[in-house]
């Protein structure tokens, strides 16, 4: 007796679910302050436009998950935010759909680095030097200052791993920004970078997640740290007196990609296109200080917001663009060397 309504409900659900699934899009990002800004600027606008519902999933950049999904031909993620080395590698290995740029927008409107065969650059972020202005009497400016533990006593926060740190070490050792990757590609250059890292080793406190550096600074654990500029910006918005030294920052892009073989390809591309529009990107940059990739978005922002972005002229003057192909070639060997170095 009681089973009947239940059966009807189950049957109804079975009929309705595929319909629901079609208009629902799973978008995967890194969460945190950036995820919140994306939600406000992109996801809510997309849902309001009636195009479909968005289910937000957080991950930590693990490409293994995407690889496993594509290999098993069971794609549950429609749109994924990936870092630039991964868009290249995934594209080479056939993990991502090719982008139909005619449906995204005019390529000429975008930053050249944002246009990729398999991905659409969504924002420009930077790994920079940050410090707590309440605790340091004089402001550090260069990476040489970061290495100078005499003038600026205290611990230094750095990302656990070789990436970025080796570039910073070379800049601290006097290598010009433009020559960093040329030097690092040689055996001597890599030796030089690791030697410089050894100099600072006793003072380094390594971080794993992007949320840690501002926390270290606020807690007074470190005097200076490398950090993602958006995280420092988020802490500033919470009233913390954290500051950024932009000289020698390394900027890079994150991309939207679509794992190969997903069922919602059209809707996914629609989402990417919407999230790449000038209005949406301008709204995003107002919520977190990451640079828009669509140049038309810049015109919609007021100077106060612009001054905080890694792409503003003053901030990008001495900046270094992250070299994807260098790290694609050398990354595995350098990370292994870093593991050996940290054990020494």
């Amino acid at each position: 007796m009681k089973l009947k309504p239940l059966m009807i409900a189950v049957a109804a659900a079975a009929v309705c679910l595929p319909a629901l699934a079609q208009s629902q899009l799973t978008v995967v990002n890194f969460g945190g302050a950036n995820g919140a800004a994306q939600k406000k600027a992109y996801f809510e606008a997309f849902e309001k436009s009636g195009a479909g519902k968005i289910q937000q999933v957080e991950y930590n950049g693990e490409q293994a998950k995407i690889k496993a999904m594509v290999e098993a031909k069971k794609i549950t993620w429609d749109v994924v935010e990936v870092e630039s080395p991964d868009v290249n590698r995934g594209c080479d290995e056939g993990l991502f759909e090719k982008i139909d740029w005619s449906k995204v927008g005019n390529k000429a409107d975008f930053q050249p680095a944002a246009v990729h065969e398999c991905g659409v650059g969504t924002f420009i972020w930077s790994t920079v030097m940050a410090y707590n202005a309440d605790k340091l009497k004089t402001a550090p400016v260069t990476w040489a200052d970061f290495w100078n533990t005499q003038k600026f006593p205290g611990k230094r926060g750095m990302r656990k791993g070789a990436r970025y740190n080796l570039e910073f070490a070379l800049m601290a050792d006097g290598v010009k920004t433009a020559d960093v990757y040329k030097v690092l590609a040689t055996k001597d250059g890599a030796d030089r970078a690791f030697k410089k890292m050894t100099e600072l080793k006793p003072s380094i406190q390594f971080w794993e997640a992007g949320a840690q550096p501002p926390q270290f600074l606020v807690a007074g654990d470190v005097a200076m740290t490398t950090a993602y500029n958006g995280r420092i910006d988020a802490a500033q918005r919470e009233g913390k007196n954290l500051q950024i030294a932009w000289t020698g920052g390394i900027y890079d892009l994150d991309f939207w990609v679509m794992p190969k073989g997903g069922a919602n390809k059209d809707l996914a591309l629609k989402f990417i296109s919407m999230a790449s529009s000038p209005d949406a990107q301008a709204e995003y940059a107002r919520n977190i200080s990451y640079g828009p990739t669509n140049n038309k978005a810049l015109a919609k922002l007021d100077p106060k917001v612009l001054a905080l972005l890694p792409t503003s002229p003053a901030n990008s003057k001495d900046a270094l663009q992250f070299n994807i192909s260098f790290w694609a070639d050398q990354g595995e060997a350098l990370e292994k060397r870093f593991a050996a170095w940290s054990a020494q």
């Binding site: 693990e62 490409q63 690889k67 595995e332 990370e335």
Partner: peptide, 9 residues
């Protein structure tokens, strides 16, 4: 690290 970052299974 090898599973997720380097994808060297």
């Amino acid at each position: 690290q090898y599973t997720n970052v380097d994808v060297n299974w």
